[in-house]
């Protein structure tokens, strides 16, 4: 198959979208593609599509490309690839991909190999695990995508955050915020599914009333469709 594979291998990862840093306030770092380390972001730096940007407290960064200007506020994280306008159709594709990414529904397979190496006892959870607020910063970043007119993109970013940082799914106010975007965009089935999930969380009275009202509104819309 592959005389030409080496070619795509070399060229396929070149980014099509990049932003120039127009202004940086205080602590703003970025992480390139598959790198592990975070680097301080400077004014004039060009950040590629595969990078992630992270701001600290009382920090922000202004980015610009050919036709987009985006400001990321404090305590936020965003993938540069998310800073883009998407069509509703693209959002639906992205939502559909969530299920397609999952392994097919087959029984868990055990290996033919029954050898045991070592003397481990039981399935332990490493004590190195610690609470992580990066997921919250990701949600803050997603929210700012919406505030900058990139609502479809913000929903995709939020959904990925829920998957990678499951604790963030418990943050009702954020969940409602992104569910409201689905509702506003007329994606009623998707919004309804999300509101049902949210209703299982611990909600304040105000949040509960809001979710219940949205559920009823969608039911009415779907019945009259």
């Amino acid at each position: 198959m592959k005389k030409i594979i080496a070619f795509i291998f070399l060229t396929g990862i070149i980014s099509a979208q990049s932003f120039t840093v127009k202004n940086v306030t205080s602590e703003v770092r970025y992480q390139k593609g598959g790198e592990e380390n975070w680097v301080q972001l400077q004014k004039g730096t060009v950040v590629e599509n595969d990078a992630t940007i992270l701001t600290g407290k009382k920090s922000n960064v202004k980015l610009r490309d050919m036709d987009t200007e985006f400001t990321l506020g404090e305590s936020s994280a965003v993938s540069v690839s998310s800073i883009k306008k998407m069509r509703i159709d693209d959002l639906l594709l992205a939502l559909a991909m969530e299920d397609m990414m999952n392994a097919p529904k087959k029984p868990n397979k055990s290996s033919d190999n029954t050898a045991v190496y070592g003397t481990k006892q039981g399935e332990e959870v490493s004590p190195q695990l610690r609470p992580n607020d990066f997921g919250l910063k990701r949600l803050n970043g997603a929210k700012q995508l919406a505030e900058n007119g990139m609502e479809e993109s913000s929903v995709v970013a939020a959904r990925e955050t829920y998957r990678k940082y499951p604790d963030t799914k418990k943050l009702a106010s954020y969940r409602i915020y992104f569910a409201d975007i689905l509702y506003k965009k007329g994606l009623y089935e998707e919004a309804l599914k999300e509101y049902y999930e949210i209703s299982k969380l611990e909600l304040s009275k105000e949040e509960k009333d809001k979710v219940d009202a949205k559920v009823e509104a969608i039911k009415t819309i779907l019945v009259n469709k």
Binding site: G34, N102, P107, F134, K164
Partner: peptide, 22 residues
Amino acid sequence: SPEQAELITKNDSKYFIRESLK
């Protein structure tokens, strides 16, 4: 599990979450 990601990387773009049968 997703909560254990930090054991292998500080970069969350280097992995993907897939749901198993269970």
